[in-house]
Lab assay of single mutants.
Amino acid sequence: MEVVDPQQLGMFTEGELMSVGMDTFIHRIDSTEVIYQPRRKRAKLIGKYLMGDLLGEGSYGKVKEVLDSETLCRRAVKILKKKKLRRIPNGEANVKKEIQLLRRLRHKNVIQLVDVLYNEEKQKMYMVMEYCVCGMQEMLDSVPEKRFPVCQAHGYFCQLIDGLEYLHSQGIVHKDIKPGNLLLTTGGTLKISDLGVAEALHPFAADDTCRTSQGSPAFQPPEIANGLDTFSGFKVDIWSAGVTLYNITTGLYPFEGDNIYKLFENIGKGSYAIPGDCGPPLSDLLKGMLEYEPAKRFSIRQIRQHSWFRKKHPPAEAPVPIPPSPDTKDRWRSMTVVPYLEDLHGADEDEDLFDIEDDIIYTQDFTVPGQVPEEEASHNGQRRGLPKAVCMNGTEAAQLSTKSRAEGRAPNPARKACSASSKIRRLSACKQQ
């Protein structure tokens, strides 16, 4: 084909351009004929944790799935940006308080904090938690009735009371019990989460009196709706648990309003109706937990002794299953770290194939690490110290990083047969305790 000078094309009309061969290198194709290559998922490591896909996002930050490269346990990490926390009232204080509380709590029905990582340079905090497959609110939203069968609701409620009793025994008032803060594992274990607005009572406090509340409006008791200066913290949790039980068994809320002012007005009056299909035992329990006067409201001991709580409820309806993943529609909620794991395991070791967030990740503290002497050669063979940054567990980050890069360049065919977990650990520049 004859090559045409581009400067001469402006002298031709459209018809003349076609005659000189423009149609031979300008093609129009339908979008259905285009085959897009999927974007390669680059592996990203935060300390010893391999990052997966997004699980959810809230006002405080994002939650992603991660894999512990040492234990191969599935975890969830809450990623918090200090810049964003400053824009939220009491944001930083709530996060630090939640970390302090979770560090000393150990119960099967309370979410466990596994690790805390802090990135000084990017001003990011990573709260590594045990993995929960789904939230209770997500399960309720997945069915038209917006409720659980009585047998399933009873099982979840009993676990909620177990976890709540443990928190109260530790002198902690949750203040925000609701389905949105109750998570579930694949085995059906309920976990109380989000202790950001919780309050730890003084060890020598005479009672459970509280003065502040930041919980969700629909789950607040009349004493808070009416603006009382002080109130019983434990009875606030009992009320919120009662509203939660009402919601998961009926699909409704005892109090509603077009806006928060109308909602608080209705809560302050204390008038509500219980659907007739709840039955006398459940209705009596709800009335005891939603008692207007805090002094007359049920205690956890009274809830445990109630006939509806103690009764064994046979399954009359099919239980609400864990819904498919909202993004991938995966009904099994498979591990989202698998594509990243395959990338590390299947590809040659190259620095361009993975990302390490930083050479140094500070753990379990908000301060910069200490310094240790770096050896410097002298005339008599002895070495003197220069400062060298280290990880919180004493690992020399720069030395590990250099060693990792040197190993990656060394030709050794046997290394390709290593397991995925050992490869992740070798790529991680800074081991965590």
Rank of each mutant, 00 (worst) to 15 (best):
P144M: 08
L353F: 09
E121D: 04
D355P: 13
G15F: 06
I161Y: 01
W308Y: 00
G270E: 11
Q152V: 08
F298R: 02
V133N: 08
N412D: 13
Y362R: 11
C278W: 04
D258A: 10
I35C: 11
A225R: 06
I267M: 04
I35V: 05
V143F: 06
L167H: 00
Y340L: 14
A406N: 14
T185R: 06
T328W: 14
L80W: 12
K287A: 05
I360N: 07
F264L: 07
K48Q: 11
E121Q: 07
E396C: 09
L386H: 05
I238R: 00
K235P: 15
P179S: 03
G279C: 03
L50A: 13
S422W: 11
R331S: 10
F309L: 04
D208G: 11
V66S: 05
H168N: 01
L282D: 09
R405S: 13
K311H: 02
V150R: 08
K78A: 00
L263W: 00
P144I: 04
H174W: 06
W332E: 15
Y253S: 02
P326R: 13
N380V: 07
G385H: 14
A76L: 00
E407V: 11
Y246M: 09
C132T: 13
R106P: 07
K388N: 13
G188W: 05
L55A: 01
K82G: 09
K84L: 15
R147Q: 02
Q170L: 05
K431L: 14
T395A: 04
M289C: 04
V173S: 09
Y126H: 03
K175P: 00
Y253V: 14
K83A: 14
E120Q: 08
P314F: 08
W308G: 01
Y246D: 00
E376V: 06
L400K: 04
E223H: 08
Q159A: 07
A225G: 06
E293T: 10
K329L: 11
T209R: 09
V133I: 09
K416L: 05
P321A: 05
G56P: 01
H306S: 13
K97C: 05
V3P: 15
E349N: 12
L201W: 02
E351G: 10
P413I: 14
R383K: 14
G276L: 07
A218K: 09
A429R: 12
S69Q: 01
K48S: 11
P323V: 06
Q302P: 00
L17D: 15
V128S: 02
D258W: 12
N259D: 07
L195V: 02
I300A: 13
S401M: 12
G227F: 07
M392W: 03
I79M: 02
L341P: 13
T186R: 07
G227E: 03
S283C: 05
E376C: 12
S232A: 06
A429W: 08
M289Q: 01
V4D: 12
P217A: 09
Q7E: 09
L167E: 00
A205P: 01
A347P: 08
G346Q: 15
I99T: 12
S428Y: 11
G242S: 00
A205G: 03
L195W: 04
L427I: 10
Q37G: 07
K311W: 06
W239M: 01
P38L: 04
P319H: 08
F148L: 04
E121K: 03
G270M: 06
V390Q: 15
S193K: 01
K84E: 04
V390L: 08
V337S: 03
C132I: 10
N380Q: 12
D53R: 14
M289V: 05
C278S: 08
K122C: 12
